[in-house]
Amino acid sequence: MKWDISEMGSWTYGQFPPGAIIPEAGNSNDYITGGWRSERPWRDDATCTQCLLCWIVCPDSSINVADEKVTSFDLDHCKGCGICAQVCPVDAIEMVPEGCELPGVK
C-alpha cells in the first residue's frame, strides 16, 4: 500500500493506523532522521581518491554515489556519526559543527 505521510505532523489520533502499524513496506526513506545530527560531514573532492570506503561503512547509507563516484551526502538521513571521516585513508572528510559555515562554501 502507498502511504502518504507528508501531513503526518497534523494528523489527529484517528488518522493513525491502529497498533502503530506501518502499512507501507520499504518507506523508511520517507522518514527524515537527519535532524538529530550535531556535526555534518564535508568532503574535499580534490583530496578524495574515490576509494569508496566511506560508502561501504556508512551505517545510514548516506553517502550518495553516481557512476562509482562519491557525489554528496544524504543529509536527510546522515546522523553525523563521523565514521566516514574516521575511516577515510586520505582525511578527505571533515566533521563540521551543524549551523556553522562549511569549509569551502562561502
Binding site: 503526518m8 494528523w11 489527529t12 489520533y13 484517528g14 493513525f16 491502529p18 497498533g19 502503530a20
Partner: peptide, 9 residues
Amino acid sequence: GPFFEFKRQ
C-alpha cells in the same frame, strides 16, 4: 511522535 495519540486510540 504520535505515542500519545496511539494511547488515545
